[in-house]
Amino acid sequence: MLNVIWGFFLIGGILTGAFLGRMDLVTNAVIDGGGNALELAFAMAGVVAAWAGVLRIAEKAGMIDLLSEKMGPFLDFLFPQVPRDHPARNYIAANFAANFLGLGWAATPAGLLAMKELAKLNRQGERASNAMCMFLVVNMSSLQLVTVNIIAYRAEYGSAAPAEIVGPGIAATLLTTVVGILLAKILEGREKP
């Protein structure tokens, strides 16, 4: 599926470019795309490493254990397939908490570690397990307290009250999270034991 989408982006993009006479732009995109990705990776390497370091301190201090304990019932409901003492739960808890606080860069390392642990529990091969699906659906529903960058853009364009969208934003996000979770629960597939 991901292979198909990726291929569609490239094939579709190049063919449309040819029809619309935009091959010069497509050429630039092919050449610059990789470089832009590297630039982003370079920029994010420092932040992600720093947060992963802080995260490790929190882990060693037992804070992540505490966090996943506090989130226990919520995690039990979302991830019944993940055993209580499995490290995946800790990383999921850390990822959700970081996302919620708007610490996107801290959420990424925790999220990737969570995915790695969930992969160890996955017996579906290259298919996503129920737990993986649920994790990403919650992750992508972007439950977040304050969306700092949107507020900053609003301020930049002369908004009288840049932060007025925070409350409505939280309400909308809560709704998408709930819808995502419910759908993922309803559509949960049967898994090999």
């Binding site: 599926m1 995915m115 996955n122 996503a128 659906v137 759908l183």
Partner: peptide, 18 residues
């Protein structure tokens, strides 16, 4: 980003739900 990091290419219902 997340699926490819663990070599999962079939997201199943994830895409639809998201």
């Amino acid at each position: 980003l997340y699926f490819m990091s663990v070599k999962v290419t079939k997201p199943g219902r994830t895409l639809f739900c998201a």
